[in-house]
């Protein structure tokens, strides 16, 4: 299913370093009085996988949700600092979060399909954004998205069955299909495998590797093995600070910060 003309993903990332897809500078996040993130800066390259790791409660999800402004929906949450997507400030008052979320898709920790049919689940984004010109084009978009999410063969005969009737792993792949059906530029995944069994996890990881040839992917995971398997770059968070950022291999084999080392060797977590 890989576009045969496209070079392998990490070759590209290393061969031709380009302007970052997302560039975050000095991001601070407060929930009411308590500060959840302290002065985090990161550049997310295009067509690659960036993993956020760190102990639970360290602010990974909070940071991830800044990129599509999902934190706007939490009344007590205040975000400061600058984040650009393709050089555009996403906090610019002229940017509508609705439009931003069409460009930055998200997959959540717990599979959350709508209680609609499988087809309607995937077609939802294209429908609300008016991406398809007609029934046929919509069907095409849905099929393509389901194929990319490696779910097509399993569901092609029951597209009208409810999405909530699938197994956990299938539901999560359905959510991925739903997210990529709007053809986003960035895909955010918040612990997408934490509710899945090892086989479903392996399927999703394979999928992430494939999708990274088209999208820029940011994945939050509490599993260091997963970060090591799927990501090109890894950021380690601790108590609201980004402690370490680098190529995944370097972070895991040769961490610079003692806290990172403590975490990956299992002494904090």
């Amino acid at each position: 299913m890989l576009d045969s003309m496209a070079p392998a993903p990490d070759m590209r990332a290393t061969a031709a370093p380009r302007a970052p897809k997302i560039d975050a500078r000095g991001v601070n996040v407060h929930y009411g009085e308590t500060q959840a993130l302290h002065d985090v800066s990161i550049a997310i390259p295009d067509r690659s996988v960036t993993a956020f790791i760190g102990p639970s409660g360290c602010g990974k999800s909070t940071f991830l949700r800044c990129f599509n402004r999902m934190n706007d929906t939490i009344p007590s949450c205040r975000v400061s600092g600058g984040i650009t997507l393709e050089g555009e400030d996403i906090f610019d008052p002229r940017i509508d979060p609705v439009q931003l979320r069409a460009r930055v898709g998200m997959v959540f920790q717990k599979p959350n399909p709508f209680s609609k049919s499988i087809f309607d689940n995937v077609a939802y984004g294209p429908r609300i954004h008016g991406l398809a010109q007609g029934r046929d084009e919509l069907a095409d978009i849905v099929e393509t998205a389901l194929r990319k999410a490696a779910l097509w063969d399993e569901v092609k005969d029951r597209l009208t069955a409810p999405g909530t009737g699938l197994s956990g792993g299938q539901q999560q792949r359905l959510c991925i299909a739903r997210a990529i059906a709007t053809r986003p530029e960035v895909l955010l995944m918040d612990e997408p495998c934490s509710a899945l069994d090892p086989i479903a996890t392996a399927q999703i990881e394979e999928l992430i590797a494939e999708l990274s040839s088209r999208f820029s992917i940011v994945i939050v995971t509490h599993s260091m093995q997963q970060a090591a398997r799927v990501s090109h770059r890894t950021a380690f968070f601790h108590l609201g600070h980004m402690v370490e950022l680098g190529d995944t291999d370097a972070v895991f084999t040769n961490p610079r910060d003692p806290r990172t080392e403590a975490y990956i060797t299992g002494r904090i977590g």
Binding site: V98, M106, F108, N112, S115
Partner: peptide
Amino acid sequence: VPASIREAALGLGASRQQVVFGHVLPL
């Protein structure tokens, strides 16, 4: 209605009104 349904729709770029009338209210 679980927050995950709202988040799913919001994350796809649905407006508040679309979230309420398309997802939350029917449920």
